[in-house]
C-alpha cells in the first residue's frame, strides 16, 4: 500500500462515489489518494463512509435489542459487528478490524447461532422474549446514553483525528510483546481458564 502512488488524479467526486460504493475500504483508498487529492475531499469521503456505516449499525443495533426472533437478532448483530470492523478500518486499525471479523463473525456469532439452535430454534416471532416492563429499561438506557453523550460532546466535541491514523501490524505486535506482555500473558491465562471452565460447565457426567 505504502508504495502506491496514484497518478490517475481522481477527483473528489470520484472518490465520493468510490467511498459510497465500498464504504469499508475508504481508509485504504484514502491513503492511495491522499497525496494528490485535497484534504477536503478526503474528509468528505471519510465522513460519508462513517455516516453510512453508522446508520447501518444503529438500525441493526436497534433490531438486535428489539427483534422478537432470536436468530434474526443474531443476524443483525453480524451487521453491527461488521460495521465495527469497518469503523476500525476507517480509523486505520487494520489488524484489529480483521481480528474483529475473524473472532466475532467467524467464531462468536457462529457460537451464538449454535447455542440458539441447540437450545431451541423457533421459526417466527417468540412473544416471550422481552420483559413486559420496558419503560424502566428504556429510561435506564436513555439515562446512560444521555450522560455519556453529553460528557463526550462536552470534553471532546471539537477534537479532530490527526491526518494519519494508520497503524501497521508490526507496531501492534511490537507493542503487545513489549509494553503489554504481562497483560497478554494474563489474557492467555484467562482464555485457558475459560476453555476449562466451559468444558467443565457444559460436559455431561
Amino acid at each position: 500500500m505504502d508504495a502506491l502512488a496514484p497518478t490517475t488524479g481522481a477527483l473528489a467526486a470520484d472518490s465520493l462515489a468510490g467511498a459510497a460504493l465500498a464504504p469499508t475500504t475508504s481508509v485504504l483508498f484514502a491513503d492511495a489518494l491522499a497525496p494528490t487529492t485535497s484534504v477536503l475531499a478526503l474528509l468528505v469521503a471519510q465522513n460519508v463512509a462513517f455516516y453510512v456505516i453508522a446508520a447501518i449499525m444503529l438500525f441493526a443495533g436497534f433490531r438486535v435489542v428489539t427483534s422478537p426472533n432470536v436468530v434474526h437478532a443474531a443476524l443483525y448483530l453480524i451487521a453491527v459487528l461488521a460495521g465495527v470492523a469497518a469503523l476500525f478500518l476507517l480509523l486505520g486499525a487494520e489488524f484489529v478490524g480483521i481480528t474483529q471479523v475473524l473472532i466475532y463473525i467467524g467464531a462468536v456469532i457462529v457460537l451464538f447461532l449454535f447455542g440458539i439452535m441447540l437450545t431451541r430454534s423457533p421459526m417466527g416471532a417468540d412473544t416471550e422474549v422481552d420483559h413486559p416492563r420496558r419503560l424502566p429499561a428504556t429510561l435506564a438506557a436513555a439515562l446512560v446514553g444521555a450522560v455519556t453523550i453529553y460528557s463526550v460532546l462536552d470534553y471532546f466535541g471539537d477534537e479532530q483525528f490527526p491526518k494519519e491514523t494508520r497503524t501497521t501490524t508490526n507496531e501492534v505486535a511490537d507493542s503487545i510483546f513489549s509494553d503489554y506482555i504481562i497483560a497478554f500473558e494474563a489474557v492467555s491465562v484467562l482464555l485457558l481458564a475459560a476453555l476449562i471452565g466451559a468444558i467443565v460447565v457444559a460436559r455431561r457426567d
Binding site: 435489542v65 422481552d130 420483559h131 420496558r134 429499561a137 435506564a140
Partner: peptide, 11 residues
Amino acid sequence: AMGVYGILVRR
C-alpha cells in the same frame, strides 16, 4: 445504551 436496554429487557 442499546446494549444496556437489551440487557435489562431481554429474557
